[in-house]
Design a protein around this nucleic acid. Sequence first.
DNA 1: AACGCAACCAAAAACGTTTCCGAAAATAAG
DNA 2: CTTATTTTCGGAAACGTTTTTGGTTGCGTT
Lengths: 342, 342
Amino acid sequence: MVSIKDIASKAGVSISTVSRTLNHYADVNPRTRDKIFKIAKELNYFPNAVARSLVQKKTHTIGVFFGNKTNSGFDHPFFQDVISAVREVVGNAGYDLLVFTNKNKERATYTTLSKERSVDGIVLLLTGEGKKWDHQLTELQESGIPCTAIDVPLVGEKCGFVESDNFSGAKQAIEHLISLGHTTIAFIGGDEISKTSFDRLRGYQQALMDHKLGLDPTLVRLGYFIKEKAMEETRNLIETGKQITAFFAASDEMAMGVIEALTAIGLRVPEDVSVVGFDDIREAAYFRPALTTIRQNKYKLGSTAAEVLLKIIENTGPSSCPVVLPCELIVRESTAACSRRE
Amino acid sequence: MVSIKDIASKAGVSISTVSRTLNHYADVNPRTRDKIFKIAKELNYFPNAVARSLVQKKTHTIGVFFGNKTNSGFDHPFFQDVISAVREVVGNAGYDLLVFTNKNKERATYTTLSKERSVDGIVLLLTGEGKKWDHQLTELQESGIPCTAIDVPLVGEKCGFVESDNFSGAKQAIEHLISLGHTTIAFIGGDEISKTSFDRLRGYQQALMDHKLGLDPTLVRLGYFIKEKAMEETRNLIETGKQITAFFAASDEMAMGVIEALTAIGLRVPEDVSVVGFDDIREAAYFRPALTTIRQNKYKLGSTAAEVLLKIIENTGPSSCPVVLPCELIVRESTAACSRRE
DNA sequence: AACGCAACCAAAAACGTTTCCGAAAATAAG
DNA sequence: CTTATTTTCGGAAACGTTTTTGGTTGCGTT
């Protein structure tokens, strides 16, 4: 491997001169500058990023953490777009992405792994189950490592987070259903710990209250963002005998599960019961019936998470966190006017 | 940042002893060993991977290159599963993933970027347009950097590649169509440079010849793996007036385009014309009509690419390259018996 | 008492950079 | 022709490790 030293000896100058030249310092004679650049090109030189990082304490690398369950990384239908956006904007700023695989490391945390690798900042892309590690999260918040997350409320001087307006999104969904004449609406929520789940539940309740439709606690169930669990809960819900005419699921995957369970029972969607999902993952448009859902702007979610992170890292401008992005109701085929006569 | 030096001074030993201790060398007294570990824990020490990499010339990092067009990275419907698999197996082996964003670097190549970052190996995930950079590829093959690729035929001592059995896959697709009674089958291929495209074309031709159905060159068109191009070509094909009863597209995205174009013209799928795709991306199952397609084992593609790479890096076992994985015909709704009477 | 052999540890070089500081050379000012 | 000022460059420390080499120390053996 050809180093700065080789160039120096070939050019008859010191390594510090070579370094200053290559980094475009002003105090170097044009003649020697040209010579050094010429030799560098001849020798096919390129700098060693590792050595540079060691002294500069800057790696031009952004760390990425996924949850470590399956279906929670690149193959997650929601995160694939946000990670794509993150890559785009950090790339334009000159950073590469280090995806932590964090396997077989016992006592490792986000913080220790980040410090070991000396990444300049990190973005957290956690699914439901990953968010419960608050001890890790508080450690991170206090660590001083620049970090942003999607959906998980990080607070701290070097922290930021961005999320969709889950409250309003859920509210929109329910209002859509109400405008269609539905009055008995079940909610398949996420979990009991994430802010995301909580906000969507609140939106559901608020919309119901706004329209003077009573809240029936037995109508809200937890699906933990898992399709199978959602199927199970819809079966349970139907078995209660209540005349439920619409379901709102806190994710598209669960909505698909709801529809699948409903269909298995013999109920037609949307003729007999309407269902709306949340997220607008790719499959939602192709599913049959095509899902009516609340679209999250996944690309924007990722890009602003990255932008906020870069601001924190480079200390430019106020962080203005959290950022909350609007959702959009996408009406497709899984919702229809309520058929049940009062 | 607490370093090995801090531990050394606090323990009253030299830094080399600390290093040897932490790396579990044998020649260190149990008493000092315990003391050093205790202090390390107290000080919340963890090693600096950058410094270690500098001396060891090993980063425990696998580089990943995507094409730099949009829809060719994480958001590519095909690669999301393979990158997921790559992450899984390299993670188990103790490597992290460095995703190159390679923006705004003018003269950078796969080779120079990899050497700059000192990654231990790389995997290439290129879409059609990316594969034409053969000067970059030959440079890489000669560089001695361990590398594997999906679908692009890398040869060299430190290179490997894995692909699906595109020839047999295409052959299966056509045979399925033939068994359904189709005799006039159009082919919407990929491009004119990639091996993948070429093999699928060969499979198409071979199947036709095996069944004594003549080859009509005007029935094969290039869609460049782009939906819109595929739509255009199907329109062109229909306008020729030939009684085409089936289309075979070299990718699911193109197959969807074909169906869309057909539907726009007023032709029904599969009643009037059958179409089969290639890949079996997620959307294929949800699309309507659900796509009959040739499934590539995307996870296996990624995992064996990673396994081969690790073998090359760690010099264990023969590389046995290329690896070619079988495809599987998935019959869904977009194909049916030929309705046209002879 | 002398020797050999373990066991244990310290010193120092090395990895490839950046960067601070000061020195030499060149130029300008007096 | 001296002095002051700029321009240009080299020396050396520093970043945090690993790894080689060799040196003590202590012990058991003759």
